[in-house]
Design a protein around this nucleic acid. Structure first.
Lengths: 351, 351
DNA sequence: CTGAAAGCGCTTACAG
DNA sequence: CTGAAAGCGCTTACAG
């Protein structure tokens, strides 16, 4: 691969004249004929400064265009109303949307939000360096690593972990994936489907599928569960095999694990000339907005709503209804079924 | 509130009467049996510390999970070695990948990277509060606003603007979109295509298309340029009309503006029973990695490579070959054509 | 190679 | 009401 192709480079010799504010409280103190202690108090609205003195000081500060040095201030009182989000590499679209939502809501609540990309442990360290006092994490393999845990322990602020079981060390928000899949199955069952397939590998979701299947006494069939682990593309051959079966042989509805799996499935369907939803109903886990413009059909989905997740997190962090004690809170967020274009009554598939 | 109790047996409780204070260079100094001056030098890679001493100090720092206090460092006026990325809402996948690449390379170069989501002006303010001394921006309507410009002017650090014309106030990296589209046309022309369509709305790209068309004396035809502005979905009807024409009437190759447009086009192709690349060649602008798993075919693309963009930015910021004067640099990055599955010789389309 | 000391600009007890 | 002093954690001359 060729190196960076820079074919036109120029140097701008104009210097940016920085109007550096060298004005400190000491300068103001001298001009006002008071001590810089008094200046500090006056400017910070502390009590115990005569109004006359205070006004004089403020006037001078304005005149000199005084800008407080935040580094100095922060060195003394280490506070910041900012929230840090840990964003591991390759986290995909769902996290992208969740964090976008989170920031919109956090901004409204008066927080500034920063995101640390890359290695989560490094991210926590970055936030510590920058005085971010609240950190929000979405778990991945990387941030359950010993390194991350060690780093997390040295963090003095508040932490909120999404999608985690309750912990004595941080707030948690969990998602009931099992219940989500059960909702999906319920919906399909309500439409008369008895022969349903689940394609995926997440154990919580599979458990939900199994449980719902038993409760509703769904039909047991060879394609009931097609296990497609992350690094086994060949497992998708089984999906293709299923799609090639005759209408009476194959299931009438599918549930897929993720939107990635959904794309693979849609590809295979096209290859096998199976139309969705004309030949087969489909529900996908995870609701990612831009998918609509990428797929031919608007897919029925189930999963946690990013706005709900974000506001649940913010509620905890802003301490809404927070027990005064200051213990950590553990909230479970329910999923939502968004019925759209890809689920039809089983009667539509009658032979 | 119940704090996170760090209990590390190797820490002598003498230094930490509360058992949870933040570790400073003084703590490390005491453990290492040296002065904190030496610790500072050792940790900052300053010369004049015996290797043995340095290693010992570094080992202790790691063990204690030492995080330097940026406020203190910044007070004595030193760089914070962190770069802030401004990430406006709805910026889409390309920026997502560019920033991911940027952070990977920046981390290798020893910087910590933070991203500010949401309003760009607020982002700059956040970064100022947190001692970030370098800010990287991708232009949008929001960050050419007067508010942003005002905020930018009060920022004392270095700024790098992607996709901007040279400026006396910051570094810039521009992308030659015009040339990118010319590359695409050249490639198609080389395959014998004379009847090519451009679908999109970006004026630079259209200019590139027009220019290349004139240079190569391509055929002029009714579907040469289909202008599809952002808020005019009806403009896509013209694309559908084109696809419904007979093989001899319609163009043999298409170039689309963006991956969003690509998805729309692929949908329409399916509806109109036009196969790509069996019936029509296609080149899309912008190379976004995950597209591969979402489309049936692997699309030939043209556009700036995120790795190149990221490393060009980093080169500037790390001052590789930087003139000592401190002027701003302005670099133009070329695009790359990634020939993949969707461009065929025009002879394949012979009637 | 190592360390004592000054000091960055500010806040906050504490004493007048 | 006002101010002298201590100190936040760090870097950087400077002296040993």
């Amino acid at each position: 691969m060729s190196p960076i192709l820079i074919y036109n480079e120029s140097i701008d010799q104009n210097f940016h004249e920085s109007g550096e504010s060298v004005v400190t409280i000491k300068d103001i103190a001298q001009m006002a004929g008071v001590s810089f202690t008094t200046v500090s108090k006056a400017l910070n609205g502390e009590p115990g400064v005569r109004a006359e003195t205070r006004n004089k000081i403020i006037a001078i500060a304005n005149k000199l265009n005084y800008v407080p040095n935040l580094a100095a201030r922060r060195l003394v009182d280490r506070k910041s109303d900012s929230i840090g989000l840990i964003w591991p590499n390759k986290s995909g679209l769902f996290l992208y949307h969740l964090f976008e939502q989170f920031q919109i809501q956090a901004e409204k609540a008066g927080y500034s939000v920063m995101v640390a990309l890359g290695n989560p442990a490094a991210g926590v360290r970055t936030f510590m360096k920058h005085f971010v006092d609240t950190i929000v994490v979405w778990p991945t393999a990387e941030n359950t690593s010993p390194e991350f845990i060690r780093t997390r322990e040295s963090f003095q602020g508040t932490m909120l972990m999404f999608n985690s079981s309750p912990s004595p060390y941080y707030h948690t928000i969990s998602i009931d994936r099992q219940e989500a899949i059960q909702q999906a199955v319920d919906h399909l069952s309500g439409l008369g489907h008895r022969k349903i397939s689940f394609i995926g590998y997440n154990s919580e979701k599979i458990t939900g599928f199994d449980r719902a299947g038993q409760l509703l006494q769904l039909e047991d069939h060879p394609d009931r569960l097609i296990f497609t682990p992350k690094n086994a593309p060949e497992s998708w051959n089984r999906v293709a095999d299923m799609l090639r079966k005759t209408k009476s042989q194959r299931p009438t509805a599918l549930i897929v694990d993720s939107y990635i799996a959904m794309f693979k499935l849609l590809k295979l369907c096209r290859m096998c000339n199976v139309r969705i939803p004309e030949d087969l109903s489909l529900i996908a886990y995870d609701d990612v907005p831009e998918l609509e413009e990428m797929t031919d059909i608007v897919v029925t989905t189930v999963g946690p709503n990013v706005e709900h997740l974000a506001s649940a997190a913010l509620d905890i962090l802003t301490g809404h209804g927070h027990p005064a004690e200051g213990g950590y809170r553990h909230v479970k967020v329910a999923s939502q079924l968004a019925v759209r274009g890809t689920t039809r009554p089983v009667s539509d598939y009658a032979m």
